[in-house]
């Protein structure tokens, strides 16, 4: 199994946003920068929250922005955005959000491994605050147990 990657361009620390839409948009931009998605995917992540509500705020302070697989997903990817000031997503218990993770998967089956990794990381309840306060992409990668480059992953 390859080490999952989180390139520098997929990490945006201390983003200044006014509301949850901007926060999700930053997570989408970071996914697009890393080559995982096209810009339309960002709109679909926002549409999921508009349709179903803030359930993507899966833990106190953490939103897992995502949408279904689609042609705008070029390959599986992850982005991490921390917010300079937390924003409300409208979740009854888990607001305000200080960390937004953007998740893009190419098909419903292949994402289980990446989600399992996230579950392992975030089952430690301290991790969200640590990521929120991370000073570098390296620190975020270390907390998530991820590598920097994805070159080896796509060689074949």
């Amino acid at each position: 199994m390859t080490t999952p990657s989180l390139p520098d361009v997929a990490v945006h620390l201390g983003a200044h946003v006014d509301d949850w839409r901007q926060a999700v948009r930053e997570a989408g931009r970071a996914l697009a920068r890393s080559g995982s998605t096209r810009a339309e995917y960002t709109d679909r992540m926002i549409a999921v929250i508009e349709e179903f509500g803030a359930y993507v705020v899966v833990a106190p302070g953490l939103a897992l922005a995502h949408a279904r697989p689609g042609p705008d997903v070029l390959r599986e990817g992850l982005s991490v955005v921390t917010l300079a000031a937390p924003v409300e997503f409208g979740h009854p218990h888990n607001d305000p959000v200080s960390v937004v993770i953007g998740l893009a998967v190419a098909n419903a089956e292949e994402h289980v491994a990446s989600v399992a990794r996230l579950a392992n990381v975030f089952n430690d309840e301290q991790v969200i605050a640590r990521i929120a306060g991370a000073a570098s992409a390296d620190e975020v990668r270390q907390l998530l147990g991820m590598g920097r480059s994805d070159e080896s992953e796509h060689r074949s």
């Binding site: 999921v48 349709e51 359930y55 993507v56 899966v58 897992l64 994402h111 399992a116 996230l118």
Partner: peptide
């Protein structure tokens, strides 16, 4: 909502 991501967690 979408059957991926959050429901898998």
């Amino acid at each position: 909502g979408s059957g991926i991501g959050t429901s898998a967690i």
